[in-house]
């Protein structure tokens, strides 16, 4: 790029700006990472140690934060006494189930939508996307009434179905963009060679496979992090990690150590998954409107 070769002269103003931006980035990093850091560290602290704090204005007292003997007792407590392994399994089944259903059905629908044109297609599309954008609380009111009459409240299938309300439209919408990028000529060539339509579809699947994989992960992430559906529709029998974490907050005595440990257990897998699909993150989170 030629633009890189344009010589910029350093003036006091630009130098000042550079310093300012460096400080800004540093401050922003601290502000971003501090809550996560506090969560991690506090989950290893004993109850009283987590409450230690310097006096107001005592800046040299910050070191108190690191003054503790690390303990794993909160994690042990979570998994041995508080049944977190079951909630984790619930989360995994609900999120995974809805992600797989959504992506399988979604890729079929997205493929067809990308290959044919028919009257009312844009209306169908708008309906699909508006399902995804609808406020969770608003959707939940009728869904709760229906699920209650079908005895689906408090069951994993109910929760999977509830998550599918936002994951399926997401999958259709996003994957259509992926199939649009695969030229129809490839399938035509396959079919001229004698492949059936379905075989032709299977033949182009490897081309979109990385995207499909990434969006399964993204669907899992959305469902895993959900709280409202899980709290109302999964309440009782299908308690997931976010709900279980929230329930540790009791008016009388808030178990901060356990809450922080539960937070780590809930957050860590998703952070790792997020890093794995880093490339597709922007596309996914902007519903395909912005590509990196």
């Amino acid at each position: 790029m030629a633009s890189r070769d344009v010589v910029r002269y350093e003036t006091p103003l630009t130098r000042g700006f550079r310093w300012f931006s460096a400080v800004f980035i540093a401050l922003y990093l601290v502000w971003t990472l501090l809550p996560i850091f506090v969560m991690f560290v506090s989950s290893f602290k004993d109850l009283l140690e987590a409450f230690k704090i310097p006096a107001v204005g005592d800046w040299s007292g910050i070191g108190v934060f690191f003054d503790f003997t690390p303990t794993l007792k909160h994690y042990r407590d979570l998994f041995l006494n508080l049944d977190f392994s079951r909630y984790m399994a619930n989360s995994l089944v609900a999120a995974g189930g809805s992600a797989v259903i959504s992506v399988i059905l979604g890729s079929m629908a997205a493929y067809s939508l990308s290959r044919i044109d028919f009257k009312g297609k844009s209306d169908l599309f708008f309906w699909i996307i508006s399902t995804r954008m609808a406020p969770v609380v608003a959707v939940m009111v009728p869904l709760y009434a229906i699920f209650r009459s079908l005895d689906l409240v408090g069951t994993l299938p109910g929760l999977i179905l509830a998550y599918t309300t936002f994951n399926l439209p997401f999958a259709i919408w996003i994957l259509k963009g992926f199939f649009d990028n695969v030229p129809y000529a490839i399938e035509e060539a396959q079919m001229v060679d004698g492949a059936t339509r379905f075989q032709a579809f299977m033949a182009i699947l490897p081309l979109v496979a990385p995207g499909i994989g990434a969006f399964i992960v993204l669907c899992i992430l959305f469902a895993w992090n959900d709280f409202l559906f899980a709290a109302i529709i999964g309440s009782g029998g299908a308690k997931t990690l976010p709900v279980a974490t929230r329930e540790l907050v009791q008016p009388q005595n808030i178990q901060w150590g356990s809450i922080m440990a539960a937070g780590v257990v809930t957050t860590l897998p998703m952070m790792l998954l997020g890093l794995v699909i880093r490339r597709y993150l922007v596309t996914g989170l902007t519903m395909g409107a912005v590509k990196e």
């Binding site: 980035i25 922003y28 990093l29 971003t32 990472l33 809550p35 996560i36 506090v38 969560m39 506090s42 992430l221 895993w224 992090n225 959900d226 709280f227 990690l241 976010p242 974490t245 929230r246 907050v249 901060w256 809450i259 922080m260 539960a262 937070g263 809930t266 957050t267 998703m270 952070m271 998954l273 997020g274 890093l275 880093r278 993150l281 989170l285």
Partner: peptide
């Protein structure tokens, strides 16, 4: 590397983020 670091909060369940901030 900076952008990847900045991504961290977005992966957090909002409810957990709320609880951590409640603590802070």
């Amino acid at each position: 590397i900076l952008v990847t670091t900045l991504l961290m909060p977005m992966m957090m369940a909002p409810i957990v983020a709320g609880l951590v901030w409640y603590f802070l």
